[in-house]
Amino acid sequence: MKGSFLLLIFNSLCFLVHAQEIRKVDTSFTVHGTFAKESKRRPHITLAEKVDTTVLTIRQIPYKKTDDRILSLDAYLPKNFDIRYPCLILIHGGGWRSGNKEMMATMANALAHQFLVLTVEYRLSLEAKFPAAYTDLMDAVLWAKSQKQLPIDTARIAVIGTSSGGQLASLLGTNTAANKGASVQAVVNIDGIVAFNHPESEEGEMASFWLGGTYDQEPTQWEKASPLYQVNAFTAKTLFLNSSIPRFHAGRDDMIRKMHDLGIYTEVFTFKDSPHTFWFFNPWFEPMIDKIISFLTKNL
């Protein structure tokens, strides 16, 4: 196992030598920019930045080659390689257009004592429209399930997403990709909508750009991208963690009802007086991590 681990590090370092092609990137959504905005409204908040040095980190591991470039992920591992760990795949937000996997580093670090955590790069809307991001994340799940170099328990894989990443996590959790082997056992949706065309939804230009047009222009794409409309008997158990902003709950209660009708377990918790991006900040970070660990320990 340790020899395979060293080989993985070597392969990752070789990957770093090869520069990716320059492409247009939207950098409007950043952790520090979000903190600067939210701290004006809530002066008591602080960034959750604590890092545990006992966690091993391997960065820029290639997991997929598209027509144009290579996509990578970062792995956060417990130091004990004598057992296999459930695998958590973390999906960043940013309106399907911005953000990056590094935004999930603090969360990954906090979860990497009991789980093996992967933070994943995927194609955003300036590079490729839906379903490219979804396809990339399915391939990340398949990559995790195929791993022999990392101590992953391939029968226990969960996805955790924030904002637009939460929508993608829930879409993966509906197991529409089950025939390709990319099914997951649990989902944590952190303030991600689950329906685009819904009375509670306020999605507009960002969603339209990602989905290739407005609802009137591309109704099939809008419905295919909505986890609410994909719920089936194989949908994964789900924890919904939400801010106090109603628009980011769009479709949630209807999805919970559909899942309950099918006998699928769900939990839901809304953090009072919290901003949309509460997962970046204290005082919400630690309670959020506790709820994630409690849910996954019972259901993964």
Rank of each mutant, 00 (worst) to 15 (best):
S12R: 06
G165I: 00
P227A: 07
Y76N: 03
I289E: 05
R59E: 15
P246E: 13
A207N: 05
M103G: 10
L118M: 14
T176G: 03
T135M: 11
R59P: 01
F209T: 06
D216Q: 15
A140N: 14
A133D: 03
I83Y: 11
K148I: 07
D74F: 06
A19M: 07
I58N: 04
L142E: 09
S72C: 14
T34L: 03
R257K: 08
S208D: 14
W279N: 11
G263A: 07
I256L: 00
E286L: 08
V187R: 02
E127P: 06
Q60M: 09
K64I: 01
Y134F: 14
W143L: 07
D253I: 01
D191N: 11
V17A: 14
G212P: 05
L8F: 07
K272P: 04
L168H: 01
E102N: 10
E121H: 00
I256Q: 12
F285G: 05
A48F: 07
G165Y: 01
Q20W: 08
A112H: 06
P219M: 09
I292E: 04
D82K: 14
S39Q: 14
M1Y: 13
N232E: 04
L77T: 01
G204D: 10
V117A: 02
S183V: 00
R69D: 14
E267I: 02
L13N: 07
S146L: 11
L47V: 07
K148F: 10
F15G: 12
K79P: 13
R247N: 07
G192P: 04
P62G: 09
A112F: 01
T238N: 03
F278L: 12
Y134S: 13
L7A: 13
H249N: 13
L239H: 03
S243A: 08
L171E: 00
F15P: 00
V188N: 02
A110M: 02
I157M: 04
A225Y: 02
T238C: 13
H18G: 10
S294R: 11
P283S: 10
T34K: 05
V141N: 03
G161C: 09
D254Y: 07
I289R: 09
K129T: 10
A186I: 03
S163Q: 06
S98T: 07
K101L: 06
K50N: 15
M104V: 05
S125L: 07
F15D: 10
E205S: 10
L47Q: 06
A75F: 02
R84A: 11
D68Y: 13
L71Y: 03
I83C: 12
K50P: 00
F271C: 10
P275D: 09
L171A: 02
E202N: 09
P219A: 09
K291D: 01
K129S: 15
F115V: 01
W222K: 08
A132G: 08
T30S: 13
F5L: 13
T176H: 10
R247P: 09
D52T: 12
L142H: 09
